[in-house]
Each structure stands twice: as structure tokens, then as C-alpha cells.
Design a protein around this nucleic acid. Structure first.
Lengths: 211, 211
DNA sequence: GTAAGTTTCAAACGGGCGTTTAGCAGGAAA
DNA sequence: TTTCCTGCTAAACGCCCGTTTGAAACTTAC
């Protein structure tokens, strides 16, 4: 009990602080003092800072990937060929299913996903690729029939364009919303942004098939 | 002469190394030894590491922003209302104009632009906003008539969706191209990627006006 | 109640960091 | 020739980092 509490508290603090400042910029001392545990606890329970970073991702991604898989399979029993819009919908509703609609844990974690790409943490990218590569390929395999006429190269690039749009937007969510509030004078509702984002991605993806 | 050489060599090394590893992860010792200059030279010529980071951005962005402005003005003497495609074309041809088509300095710098968003360098975002905010607004002002029917919120969000797509793709350019080569077995030409990227962005942007 | 095993803790370790300092080299000005 | 100034440099400063250690505190099992 006491153990689980410590581990859980470290993960909670690390998830928030990594998202706010990045991995290299967040020290173990900052994490452990925010979590109210001893500095040595990280190395005792996780072994190293690298392993802690990976553990943060596992705790979030494992249930999310399972939920996506579940929704994909369920949808397939109803429709034979899924549309681009279906596939994007699966992503957002999976996040909602796990965390509820207004969760800022989700947007905070999207920032982590973005950091995983842009920060120099080769071990993390390798780890994510190894652990979630199959699930990613499975999801991608549904996109091919949804975009008839697109070549393999088309698919690859347009999928990553869409991925980039989502990751960039989500990972800078708070900053963008603050800027928009400055510009237009009113706070944009999350649902509006999400629906516009998916529409943007869908329009771009469809473009892959029409050439 | 001797001075300029040292300053220039520090900027060259810093630009490459920051892009490869990020700001916090690149030490002044790494930069100065790569540049072949003394460690203290950075603080002597730039004052601090923060100022060095800003100087890297100024050296790249100042000429680029000027070129974009020039092309915008020139285009306006020919056409009264610029299209989305025109505006995107200005961006790519400005980069080409300054660095030539195949330059990897451009893609390397795009990575820096991405890092400026995602890394915790508040001073840098503030600096960029202050120095280039006006130019950004000017560019954005051309987008409004190009997308009739879009509200201010539509414009803001779709523009940042597009920005995110570009920054994410460019800043992970090498990694993405390596993945694609793994997948499809052949190396995608830069021109193909750029043209698909702009088409993706244009399709998404047009989507803002049609609702 | 005692032994064994787990978890927590304060303290220290070696190392890398950004920055500062005091002095050196060498051309320009007098 | 001397004086000044700018560019440069070796060495050191204090600080924070991730990790390790050895003992204390607590649980569990017999």
C-alpha cells in the first residue's frame, strides 16, 4: 500500500512536470519534492530517470491503445469499410472514454507525446516504437481502404501530416487558447477546437486520394 | 575580422547542435569545442547562453522575414486578392530564394522553430513574439480575404493547424524520411513532400471557409 | 518476540553545467 | 616606444544534476 502510493505519486508529479517543462529540464529533485517523497525513491522504484520517463508513457498509453483497439473492432462489426471520419472519431472518443470530456490530463499528456518527438530522448522513441508499433500499424491499415487511389507514399506522408497537426495543436493547447483569447476576446470551447481540428485533418487526408 | 570569424563560427555550430539536441541538452562546452573557439568566447561575445539562442534565431529569421515581405508586396502589385495557394507559395519560395532548393540548413532551422514552441524557453517565445509579431500579423491579414466566410476564430485556429503541420513535418523531416524509406523502400524526393504538404495545408485551410 | 525482507531516508559522490576572473597577445593611436 | 584597447584564453567558481550508499523504520511471517 505504502509502496504503491509512492510509485503512484511519483508518476503523477512526473507526468505534470515533464509536460510543463520537458524531460531534461525537470530534475528528479523537483519531481520528488512535488510528490512529497524522498529523492532516492525514484531510483529505488524505477531504477533510473529514463525508466521513469518510460513508465509515465506506459501508464497513459497502455489503456488508451486498448480502448482504441476495442472501438476499432466494435465498429468493424457494424460497418465493413471505415471512413476517414470514423477513424478520427475513434481517437477522440477513446480519449473521452478514458478521461471524460474536459480532462486536462489528456491535453497535458498530448504535450508529452509532442515532446517525445521533439526532445532528444532516443531511448523513448525506440521504446514507444517497440511497444506500440504494432497497434499503430493496425490503425494505419484501416486508413488504406478509406482513401482509395492513394499510394503507399501518399498514405504515409498524409498520415504524418495529420499526426503533426494534432500533436502540435494539443501540445501547445493552452498557449494557443491564450493567444486566441487575446485576439478575439473570447475563450474558445474545447469542443469547437476538437471538431475544427478533426475537420482540418479529414480535409487534408482526403486530399491524398484525389490526385 | 578575427572577431567576426569567432562570432560566426559560434553561431554556425550552435545552430546545428541546438537543432540536433535541443537547447538545454546542448552545453556551451559542446558548442565551443565544435566551433574550435574558447569556452569563454560565448559569454564574451553574446553575454549569456540565452542571448546566443536568440542570436541564432535573428540571424536566420531577419533575412527570411524580409524576403517574405518583399514577395508579398511584389505579388500584390500583380494580383489584387491573393489566394491561399499564393500565400503558401510565398513561404516556400522565400526559403528557396535565400538558401536554394536542397539546403538542409533550412530543414535544420525548421526543427529549431519547432523547438522554440515545445521547449521551455519562455524568454525565446517572448523575444520572437516581440520581434516578429508585426510581420506575422501582416502575413495573416492576407489570409482573411483569401478565406471569405471564415470568422476570426476560424482563421486563427485553422492558421495554427496549418502552422503545426508544417513545423511538425519540417522539424522531424529526417526522422520521417527515414521511416518512409523503411516502409516503402524508396527515398521520397523533397519536392514531393513539400508539394504534398502545401496541398494538405491548403485543403485544410479551405475547409475553414466552407461551413 | 524475533528474524527476514521491504521501503524510506539523510548524506554524500563524482561530474557537468553556465559564468566570472585575471591576465595575455597584438594592432592602433600617441 | 609607450599606451591603450579589443579579442581571446586558461583556470577556477559555485551550483545543480543523477545516482549510490548504509543505516533506520516499518511489514510480514513464523
Amino acid at each position: 500500500m505504502a509502496q504503491k502510493e509512492t510509485v503512484e505519486r511519483i508518476l503523477d508529479a512526473a507526468e505534470v512536470l515533464f509536460a510543463e517543462r520537458g524531460f531534461a529540464e525537470t530534475s528528479l529533485r523537483t519531481i520528488t519534492s512535488a510528490a512529497g517523497v524522498n529523492l532516492a525513491a525514484v531510483n529505488y522504484h524505477f531504477g533510473s530517470k529514463k525508466s521513469l520517463i518510460q513508465a509515465v508513457f506506459v501508464r497513459f498509453l497502455d489503456p488508451l491503445v486498448d480502448e482504441i483497439e476495442r472501438q476499432l473492432n466494435q465498429l468493424q462489426t457494424v460497418k465493413e469499410r471505415l471512413t476517414v471520419e470514423d477513424l478520427l472519431q475513434v481517437l477522440t472518443s477513446s480519449v473521452y472514454e478514458i478521461h471524460g470530456r474536459g480532462s486536462n490530463r489528456a491535453t497535458s499528456f498530448m504535450r508529452l507525446l509532442g515532446l517525445a518527438y521533439t526532445q532528444s530522448q532516443a531511448h523513448l522513441r525506440k521504446f514507444i516504437g517497440e511497444r506500440y508499433g504494432v497497434a499503430f500499424q493496425h490503425y494505419a491499415s484501416h486508413l488504406k481502404p478509406a482513401l482509395p487511389g492513394a499510394t503507399a507514399a501518399d498514405l504515409f506522408w498524409h498520415m504524418h501530416f495529420a499526426l503533426g497537426t494534432a500533436i502540435f495543436t494539443m501540445s501547445n493547447f493552452d498557449a494557443l487558447r491564450a493567444m486566441s483569447e487575446n485576439d478575439t476576446g473570447e475563450r474558445t470551447p474545447v469542443d469547437f477546437i476538437v471538431s475544427r481540428l478533426t475537420a482540418f485533418m479529414a480535409a487534408g487526408l482526403h486530399n491524398a486520394a484525389h490526385e
